[in-house]
């Protein structure tokens, strides 16, 4: 085989491999069920009607801290006289 033919063969194989890799990646994406991707997360975090959703607060630690600092929850009062192992 001439050197120029060998270069051509290598180039063709290289392109073929590249195509296979690309198709493999997109195939993986297609396996994902609707609603399982980042889109679903975003849908849970944002509301089309405006205002906060449950998830937009409860997945954001900073928001929770600020909210709980501003309005601390009532602690369940327990007797301080208990002693020993329960």
């Amino acid at each position: 085989m001439k050197f120029s033919e060998l270069k051509k063969a290598v180039a063709i194989i290289g392109i073929a491999l590249f195509v296979v890799v690309l198709s493999g990646c997109s195939g993986g994406d297609q396996d994902q069920e609707p609603g399982e991707g980042d889109q679903a997360v975003e849908e849970g975090l944002e509301s089309a009607a405006g205002g906060e959703t449950c998830a937009s607060c409860h997945t954001d630690k900073k928001k929770l801290v600020a909210d709980l600092d501003a309005d601390p929850p009532q602690e369940v009062e327990k007797s301080e006289e208990s002693e020993g192992e329960g």
């Binding site: 609603g35 399982e36 991707g37 679903a40 997360v41 849970g44 975090l45 509301s47 009607a49 405006g50 205002g51 906060e52 959703t53 449950c54 998830a55 409860h58 997945t59 630690k61 929770l64 801290v65 709980l68 601390p72 929850p73």
Partner: peptide
């Protein structure tokens, strides 16, 4: 207190998470 109620974003992608918070907990959303 904040850690007790902090929800992981991963939860929203689970079977239970996709039911929607109010379907089990009630409340008002948004």
């Amino acid at each position: 207190a904040e850690d007790k109620v902090l929800v992981a974003k991963e939860f929203l992608n689970t079977v239970h998470g996709q039911q929607g918070c109010t379907s089990c907990h009630g409340g008002v959303e948004p």
